[in-house]
Design a binder for these strands. Structure first.
Lengths: 325, 325
DNA sequence: CTGAAAGCGCTTACAG
DNA sequence: CTGAAAGCGCTTACAG
């Protein structure tokens, strides 16, 4: 691979000068500039990023740690972070953890060693807090209600209100027997949505009817069957996320229970697939795009220096489609 | 950030020695070793990857360029490449191009500048060939039937046979009026699948009935409506991929045309979503996992040095689910 | 078994 | 406007 020194030699100038035209960091005689540019073009020279990173102590990259890229919710999140990062002149670096706390730590470590400028952790468990504590680069928590000084900023949406909205919508749509498939309760998103459901039930004097389920398709299948046995009168289901809502629909479909005729369904997340389904899924929208944008913006604008505990809570909304009346 | 020199000083040894224990690259006195390890632990020292990369001229990373991470087919591919790369001691680096040739080139350039050890390009158009030609690192083409010396290896599956299988399955399932929604014909995958359909039609003396459609949901919606007008007698549809198959199902669902009762559908890809749908989608399976594994394996085992034109063609298979009888 | 030295390829004060 | 020098943090011959 050709180096900046060789380019310099070919152009009859010093490496400093070549560097200056590449980076536009100082005025350079236009003749020389042209020559240098031509040589770069001809030789296909590209600066060695490792050397640059070593010098500036920054890789100009934003790390993103997600539990699973296979989950379309995170895929979308990643896609937005990707776009915004690039737009802001950062390389996005995506790490999958498969929900494994050890891999979360490993990813964090790797990103640090690569001189990432900031790290966005999406939907991580609290286990990682410890590891984040002495992280030398700012960490932004996305889609998790962390508080505390570990994290430079915390961006999430109003899970509680989402839980309320879903329940109220079902009531307004004529449901009398609402069952909540509550998500994994060690997660804030699940806990707060459930609380929203609970409060609306109390306000309306409706009994609490629940089963619990991970954010997982197959478990969604199993829990829906259980739900049907436990609450045969059900006419409305709040699924803990869209994936589980899709399992729910599947079980209902197999059992010839009409949706939304006999049972109505609401999901959470508005993953892109939710509107490809037939019937299209009614769901709670989290403004993923805006949240992703905010995260990158904070990093790019360097608003994380005096860090500690910035919080950004985004509103949710309900989109009524075909699984509710 | 603490450096290896500071660790060395704290441990009362030289940087060389610390380096040796970190990399296990030579015997070190066990007392010193222990001391060094303790200091590393205490200080949370992590080696600067940029410096390492600069020295060894390799970032120990595998670049992956895909058209769109939002497409679940590529997401799955990326997830497998991710896992396998990590297992082989490489960092996976994912780049999205949004089907933009300029971004493909930019991604390639970036990966080169970062000293990636190899680059996997998935489903790229032929435009990128030119850029690949003088790529200093080996490029593996995945899911595209490129030939030629630009590429160190070419991994894809048997598109033609896939096209045949889909058609034959529909015929065996009792279809008499099969319409092929052929994919974008500038893509090998689409071209060869279409050819397979064509040949089976000829063999069975069935008329060719087609519309053309990008690998895109919304266009799939539009083309299905067109198809229904153009061929009102249709009783079997071959969609160019699973996403389009899902659009097709949607249009049929909205028009109260029963699937598979009145119209049967076959897709291509077996994206994870295809079996979450109700009814579950009959589709042609490409062994994505095996293809991803092969790509990483070639790179990790350094079988690409004498490069040029290694070809690996994987067999496809059909999985009959609920959209065919 | 261990350390001093050189070098990976860049960039930016520092002189001029 | 431009070049020589130093340094970013590692690793590996090279001596010992």
């Amino acid at each position: 691979m050709i180096t900046i020194r060789e380019v310099a030699k070919l152009a009859g100038v010093s490496a400093s000068t070549v560097s200056r035209v590449i980076n536009g960091t100082a005025k350079v005689d236009s003749d020389k500039k042209e020559r240098i540019l031509r040589i770069i073009e001809e030789t296909g020279f590209v600066p060695n990023e490792a050397a640059r990173t070593l010098f500036r102590k920054s890789a100009k990259t934003i790390g993103l740690i997600v539990p699973s890229i296979r989950n379309p919710y995170f895929t979308e999140l990643a896609a937005y972070i990707d776009d915004f990062s690039l737009q802001c002149g950062f390389r996005p670096f995506l790490c999958n953890t498969g929900y494994d706390p050890e891999k979360e730590k490993a990813a964090l470590q790797m990103l640090i060693s690569m001189k990432a400028d900031a790290i966005i952790v999406a939907s991580c468990s609290e286990y990682i807090k410890e590891a984040i504590k002495n992280c030398p680069v700012p960490v932004v928590s996305l889609d998790a209600m962390w508080s505390g000084p570990e994290v430079a900023a915390c961006i999430h949406c109003d899970y509680y209100e989402g839980g309320r909205m879903a329940t109220e919508h079902l009531i307004e749509s004529g449901c009398h027997n609402i069952v909540c498939i509550k998500g994994p309760q060690y997660r804030y998103s699940a806990r707060y949505r459930y609380q929203g459901y609970l409060d609306v039930c109390k306000e309306h004097n409706i009994p609490e009817q629940t089963v619990e389920c991970d954010y997982d398709f197959n478990q969604g299948l199993a829990m829906t069957e259980e739900l049907l046995k436990k609450y045969p009168e059900v006419d409305g289901i709040i699924a803990c996320n869209d994936i589980v809502a899709i399992s729910t629909y599947k079980v209902l479909y197999e059992q010839n229970i009409s949706v939304p005729g006999q049972v109505q369904i609401v999901g959470f997340d508005n993953i892109s697939f939710s509107k490809l389904l037939s019937p299209e899924l009614t769901t709670i929208i989290q403004p993923i795009k805006e949240m992703a944008e905010k995260a990158v913006e904070l990093i790019a604008n360097n608003e994380l220096t005096e860090l500690s505990d910035k919080k950004f809570i985004f509103p949710v909304s309900l989109i009524a489609r075909q699984t509710t009346k």
